[in-house]
Structure formats: C-alpha cells, structure tokens
Simulated assay, not measured.
Amino acid sequence: MKIGYARVSTAGQDLDSQRQLLVEQGCEKVYVEKVTGTSTAPREALTDMTENVRTGDTIYITKIDRLARSIIDLNNLVSDLIEKGVSVVFIKDNMTFEAGNANSSMNTLMFNILASFAQFERDLIVERTTEGREKAKANGKHMGRPASSSKKDMQKAIDLYYEKDEKGLSVADICRMTGVKKATFYTKLKQVQGDS
C-alpha cells in the first residue's frame, strides 16, 4: 500500500500542495498534521501512521524536513520503518530507502547531509527568533499578548467596584460595563488592595 505523510509547521501554511503531490504518487491514504517543533513526540498523525503501516507498504513524504528536523529522529524513524519492512520515499529529495535492500552508501550519506541541513535550518530559525525577541525587549517593546483592557477601563472598573453597593452592581455587571475580563479585574483588585 502507498501511504503519504504531510506536515506543515504553522496554521498559516498550506497542506494542499503536499497532499496533491502525494496523491499524484498514488498514495491511497495520506496522514496530515499541522505541528511545529523539532520533536516528533507531539505528532499524533506520525505516530498513528508508524503504528499502522505493514510489511510491504511504502511511505511517501514530499521532503526530508517534513518528516523530522532532527538528524537523530530522522535516522530513528527511517531505520524503524525499514526494520518493519516498510520502504520510505522522499519525493523532492529523490531518495528511496527500500526495506529488505542494502541501501547504497551514497544514499545514506546524502540522507544524512540533507538531514543535517534540515536541522541546521531549524536551529537558525530558533537563534534568529531568540535574538529578535531579546532585541525587542532591549528596545522596550512588550512581548506577549497585548493588555486586554486599557488603564482607563481598568480604573473605571476599580472605581465602580468601590461604589458597587450603593449602585447595586455585581462584579459581573462591572466587567460587562467596562469590558474588563473578570480574571484581569481580580488580579488588579488584589494589587490595589495590597498597595493600600
């Protein structure tokens, strides 16, 4: 049986081109997932595929880095599949690892070189992201989610809280009126009460 595996790293990326290429190769079943990171641990479709393949199956993957970006993970995955009697084809890399066949030394060398480049590329992305984050912090840029409420709205919510009994308001009413989230409100209230 011909089986395909497609993966993208982010929700914004498109799986259609990978899926189409796998179908063109004659894949009867295609495992698909949107998962980022170097580890193969959180990849449920990959786990499902490796558990369900049978001797004589062939797995098609568009490129080496779609299977894994760690040299160790790539080697382990391909070795485990070949031991199960499953062949692995990397379409765009023009590489095939056949079960039950002594794969050429040149094929293994090219596989390790391409795997090294995939891991190197991933490491560069992590480095650049970290550098960018540190530079932004050094320039006083806020990292993370923007505040859910303005200072003005928060102050209005706190003021209404202290007047709530005379106005007959509940915390839910105050949050609805000001647009401040309850959890944010209680955190700020605790700060205000701690300061006084």
Rank of each mutant, 00 (worst) to 15 (best):
K156H: 12
Q155H: 15
I125H: 03
K167N: 05
L109Q: 05
F117P: 01
I125K: 05
K152A: 14
G132F: 08
R176V: 10
E127K: 13
K156M: 12
A138T: 08
K152W: 04
D123W: 01
S150F: 00
R145I: 04
G132M: 09
E134Q: 14
G168K: 07
D165H: 13
E131V: 13
K135L: 13
Y161G: 02
G132K: 05
R176T: 13
A157L: 02
I174V: 09
D173L: 03
G168T: 02
S149H: 10
D159R: 07
F120G: 06
F117C: 05
K135R: 11
A115T: 00
S104N: 13
A172Q: 12
L124Y: 04
I174L: 02
L160R: 01
S105T: 14
M106R: 11
I158K: 01
S170R: 14
K137W: 04
A136T: 06
D153I: 04
N103R: 10
T129C: 05
A157M: 00
D159P: 01
G144P: 08
V126C: 09
Y162I: 05
I174D: 00
N112F: 05
M154W: 08
S105N: 14
F117A: 10
E121P: 02
S148P: 00
A147H: 08
L124A: 11
N139D: 09
K141L: 12
K167Q: 14
M110R: 10
L160A: 05
A172G: 12
R122C: 07
R133A: 12
F117L: 12
K135E: 15
D153Q: 07
C175V: 07
K151S: 10
S104W: 13
A138H: 11
A118C: 07
A115C: 08
N139F: 11
E134M: 15
K167A: 12
G132C: 06
E166I: 15
N103G: 00
N112K: 05
A172Y: 11
D159T: 14
S105W: 11
K141C: 01
D123F: 03
E163N: 08
H142I: 11
T129A: 04
A147D: 11
H142N: 14
L160E: 01
P146V: 06
K141E: 11
S148W: 03
Q155T: 12
F120K: 15
R133E: 14
A147T: 01
D173A: 07
V171P: 01
A147G: 03
N103D: 03
F117G: 05
R122P: 05
R128C: 00
M177L: 15
